[in-house]
């Protein structure tokens, strides 16, 4: 079983690369009939990924989220799952060629540097702490997918405004739908992050580990506020177009910068090392 881990870790980027190639082919072939190949390849890659993480979970006795590479792998899987959910909901496959290369890139880094079972078992952690980590990873992944849709929205918006009816224009879904995909992913991420925050606060208070004044905690709350503002603007204030997108992109940028800042400039009790 243990020997399977490096093998699957090597296979995973290959599986995602095949999915990326299939989606890119479907994107490039306007009116092509073979655009079911991408979803099939992606589902296979996701199943393989779930199997990989399950095997590691069984061998390590906890969720495989001990290192930054584990975190990357879980983020890649979550992004793929979020993408598949949005694809199934909206019935649009042409955006896969833009989302999945990130999944592939994330997984190749994770497979290259974090393909071994953690040698020293991490002390047993309560189920709800594991859930905190899991929901946080899923939330961040949803924000990442939302950001990709946001960028696609802005590119398409710019093209239509400028009367540039390029190949990209023809292959993208309607602007309104891209906006919905952006906000739905952001909304999903917000819900998951809310759950992660609640579970995290509960864990801090029960275990006495760490403090709520930790920079990562308040930066996360700040990110939460930005996304909440974006989702609220869309649903309650009727925001449409670039404004709502810029706010959600600001949220994702803050999220990325805050993670770098926490690791470089602050001492946080729960950063990945």
């Amino acid at each position: 079983m243990r020997s399977l881990v490096p093998l699957i870790a090597t296979l995973l980027p290959v599986a995602y690369a095949l999915a990326v190639a299939a989606y890119a082919r479907a994107y490039a072939r306007e009116g092509g009939v073979s655009d079911h190949l991408g979803p099939v390849a992606l589902r296979v890659a996701v199943l393989l990924h779930v199997f990989y993480l399950s095997v590691r979970g069984v061998l390590e006795g906890h969720l495989p989220l001990a290192s930054v590479y584990d975190f990357l792998s879980a983020t890649g899987l979550s992004m793929a799952v979020v993408y598949l959910y949005i694809e199934a909901r909206e019935g649009i496959r042409t955006t896969g060629a833009f989302v999945l290369p990130f999944v592939f890139a994330i997984q190749i880094v994770s497979s290259a540097y974090g393909n071994q079972v953690t040698p020293e078992p991490v002390p047993l952690r309560p189920f709800w702490f594991e859930l905190h980590t899991l929901t946080a990873v899923l939330g961040y992944s949803a924000f990442a997918v939302s950001a990709i849709y946001g960028v696609l929205f802005l590119l398409l918006y710019r093209d239509i405004k400028a009367n540039r009816f390029s190949f990209f224009f023809r292959r993208m879904p309607p602007l309104e739908v891209l906006g919905q995909m952006n906000i739905r992913a952001a909304g999903g991420g917000l819900a998951l992050l809310t759950l992660a925050i609640i579970l995290g606060v509960g864990w801090v208070q029960r275990s006495g580990t760490g403090t709520l004044t930790d920079p990562k905690v308040w930066l996360t709350l700040f990110v939460w506020c930005i996304f909440a503002f974006s989702v609220l603007g869309y649903h309650r204030l009727g925001w449409r177009g670039p404004r709502a997108i810029y706010v959600s992109l600001a949220g994702f940028t803050t999220l990325l910068l805050s993670r770098v800042a926490v690791d470089l400039f602050f001492h946080s009790f729960h950063s990945f090392r």
């Binding site: 239509i160 602007l175 309104e176 739908v177 919905q180």
Partner: peptide, 18 residues
């Protein structure tokens, strides 16, 4: 793809508004 100006206009409407 649209093959008249009016049809092109309607396609654009769908592209922007869904």
């Amino acid at each position: 793809g649209p093959i008249s100006s009016v049809y092109a206009a309607v396609s654009l409407a769908s592209k922007v508004l869904g």
